[in-house]
Design a protein around this nucleic acid. Structure first.
Lengths: 229, 229
DNA sequence: ACAAAAGTGTTTTACATACACCCATGG
DNA sequence: CCATGGGTGTATGTAAAACACTTTTGT
């Protein structure tokens, strides 16, 4: 295959984490090059013998010691001048982690990886702000038609956490009664017999997302859809 | 920028055309290599100094003399072995043309480009069948939440054409009265004072899609959404 | 007893669905 | 006058939206 081409291929990941009613994004500090010490998305060049999916997973592991529990392709950014060092096309990914994985280990290279509160992001290098903006849009959109919020929560969670997650990410008020009614009507949540006690207030039953049930329903043409005013 | 990487970057396009109640896809005949004389998607390698979008437009022009009126990125296919000649990552696009552009000119290289009825596709090379399948899914999905059907029709069309388009692509029966009511309720269609006479039957008023109006509505949070049983 | 968060039902409103007959033209 | 496709309205069902008080715990 004779092709003259001087284009490098990279992957980048926008990984969201959620904790105590706040939404975070993972960034890493660039160690070399013209963007040295700038914060950028975790990512890097694709190896010759790994798929794109594998490349993202590897980079996240290397740069932040992190394995996500949801990952999908977001968009491929291919403008000619998006990287000043040369032509680099980047396949961007969209990832979610639950709070168990939120605490970054300080071994690996992780000392230079950090969670940033959305809305308090530093100036990021390259065109990574565009990538982040697109990922935010994707996250908001997906919350409405895919049960993806559960990937940002621990396996068992009080209902109010789910409600707050939607409220936080969509920036909208939610009617608790209608939200709960609708969510439960899908039949993809299971009530555990555990309860969570917090400082004050009535203890909450814990729920868990039954993914197997969801997959079954999907085959029958089921549509997860939640609208908010 | 020192990176050892031996990956080629290509673009491919799944272009849909619609005529006389039938949906078509554009394929081109491969002229060289191991897939010689096999039908494949129009596409090719990205040049060093053109964006991905430009690359697709150029390839469509070169291989089929075609300029589409809707084009968006579909997905990036990056499996290691998708091309037996070596590592090639392909950014796939999704395009729509209206019937004016349907007749392929025989100049250019177009003699080897051809419309194929969906459902009567030949065996295609590489992993292009996967790409086509994904594009079909995208098309079906988009019809429900984006006014994209108009890009497959001429500027002015009888209402029944729109109805047949939905029926054909989604493979579902449609209640004509409800469909028309819903579509018109959006306020993005304009009734022209022209009428189209066909062989027999009552002549039909022609409608046109008002994209400007649609864009305005979008800013106000308008959501195009059409559900079919 | 009070503060704090969890839990719960009913009424109203809007939209989707189901359904069948008349109209304008060409042959 | 008949065949063909275009054009239209209403009644019913179902789901979303609006809305406020009671329960359980900790302090």
């Amino acid at each position: 295959m004779q092709v003259q081409q001087n284009i490098k291929l990279a992957v980048d990941a926008v990984v969201f984490g959620y904790q105590t009613n706040h939404l975070y994004i993972l960034l890493v500090k660039q160690r070399y090059g013209i963007n040295k010490n700038k914060w950028v998305l975790p990512g890097g060049f694709v190896l010759d013998k790994e798929s794109l999916d594998d490349a993202v997973a590897r980079e996240l592991q290397e740069e932040a010691g992190l394995s996500v529990n949801y990952l999908e392709q977001l968009y491929t950014f291919g403008d000619v001048h998006r990287d000043k060092r040369g032509r680099v096309v980047s396949v961007a990914y969209f990832g979610l982690v639950d709070p168990n994985k939120f605490n970054l280990q300080a071994d690996t290279d992780a000392s230079e990886a950090q969670w940033f509160l959305l809305g308090e992001l530093p100036t990021v290098g390259y065109d990574h702000q565009d990538i982040i903006s697109l990922a935010e849009k994707r996250l908001s959109a997906k919350l409405h038609y895919q049960p993806i919020g559960f990937d940002l929560l621990p396996k068992e969670f009080p209902f109010s956490d789910l409600e707050h997650l939607y409220k936080t990410i969509l920036g909208k008020e939610i009617d608790r009664r209608n939200f709960r009614k609708k969510m439960l009507s899908f039949g993809i949540l299971e009530e555990t017999n555990k309860i969570k006690k917090v400082g004050s207030g009535r203890p909450a039953k814990l729920f868990s997302f039954n993914n197997q049930k969801y997959q079954e329903l999907l085959k029958g043409g089921f549509l997860f859809e939640i609208k908010l005013v």
